[in-house]
Amino acid sequence: MSRTVMIVDDALFMRNILRGILTENGYVVAAEAASGIEAMKHLRTNQPDIVLLDIILPDSNGLDLLQSIAVSYPNSKVVVCSGIGQEQVIQKALDLGAKAFIPKPFKPEKVVEILESLED
């Protein structure tokens, strides 16, 4: 089953790697956003099944964005990406409705494993 994903990360490098992992594993990358504003713009036009969200973004707090997505686009499942040492933020994100958490740095298998666990 193919699912659509939007990648939200300010680093093109990270987006490329994630896109590589996702497309290799049968996911469709429906959109990419480098900022919170871009992400909201894309959400308005196409609602992906999954949003991969980096918690540190240039123009907005990832948590605020997460909250907006949870309220306005409840059908999109948000998976938060973040570096180690952000445990408090991660817990907050899960409380705010994030479905899962991918720690950076990640191994491709780990990303796929976490995304597959969403299907249950």
Binding site: D10, A11, F13, M14, I17, I56, P58, G83, K104, P105, F106
Partner: peptide, 23 residues
């Protein structure tokens, strides 16, 4: 905040690539 974010991004990128000294 911006400075922090640059250091943070660089760390994440380096760790992903396996460049431990940079991370």
């Amino acid at each position: 905040d911006e400075l922090f974010r640059h250091a943070h991004s660089l760390k994440g990128m380096a760790a992903t690539m396996g460049y431990e000294p940079i991370a």
